[in-house]
Design a binder for these strands. Structure first.
Length: 199
DNA sequence: CATGGGATTGACT
DNA sequence: GTCAATCCCATGC
């Protein structure tokens, strides 16, 4: 992955990240669900402007923004757009690839579909903690690599973001069509119908 | 310095 | 379907 990939508009990056591979600590997975956030809309942490917390979101592209959610979970974002613009893509779900036994130990669950099917689950499965906030996604320890050949032409669908109260109507969530590793809550009634048809 | 809310998850009815 | 866990940080006194 090149630095320029992350400098593009955040909606483009969110769509293009689906199919890319996240690796950390002996485990990896293909991104199957993302959400875009931009400082111009109130659901984004950077909406309030530059603070100690949001400094990384306004920083150079290609870095990791990690925050604690509900006091319990860590959530992973990729910082986008040129430095000075607050934009990031939340990684919401992965299809597990490498280190599946490690993921099972870290998560304490067996079922493959339960390992990385949510933003808090995947950071636990890949052992990604808040201490990696601000780290470089091109240099590591967390690395995001381009789509494998098999994912080159993945069908990506846009829909509404979930789990938020502000600006929830924006269709800024991007999912791999029909994938079985999406976050469970991410499936709208329409998408469940689509999946049923796909089977 | 005290308070309140949140880009979630899992357990339970 | 409901609900609590639990911590970071922004805000207001």
């Amino acid at each position: 992955m090149r630095r320029a990939f992350y400098e593009h508009p955040v909606l483009d990056v969110a769509r293009d990240l689906v199919g890319c591979v996240v690796s950390h600590a002996g485990s990896s997975g293909v991104i199957v669900e993302t959400e875009a956030y931009h400082h111009s809309e109130p659901a984004c942490h950077a909406y309030i402007g530059m603070t100690a917390r949001t400094r990384v979101i306004f920083g150079p592209p290609g870095r990791a923004y990690l925050y604690r959610s509900y006091g319990i979970h860590a959530c992973l974002n990729a910082v986008c757009e040129p430095e000075g613009i607050g934009a990031a893509v939340l990684i919401r779900a992965l299809e597990p690839v490498e280190g599946i036994e490690l993921m099972r130990e870290r998560r304490g669950v067996e079922r493959l579909e339960n390992l990385c099917s949510g933003p808090g689950k995947l950071t636990q499965a890949l052992d990604i903690g808040l201490e990696l906030n601000g780290s470089d996604l091109l240099k590591g320890p967390i690395v995001i690599a381009s789509r494998p050949r098999a994912w080159r032409d993945v069908d990506v669908v846009a829909s509404r973001r979930i789990g938020i109260t502000k600006a929830a109507e924006l269709p800024w969530r991007f999912s791999a069509l029909g994938n079985r590793f999406l976050s469970r809550a991410a499936l709208s009634r329409l998408e469940r119908a689509e999946q049923a048809l796909a089977r």
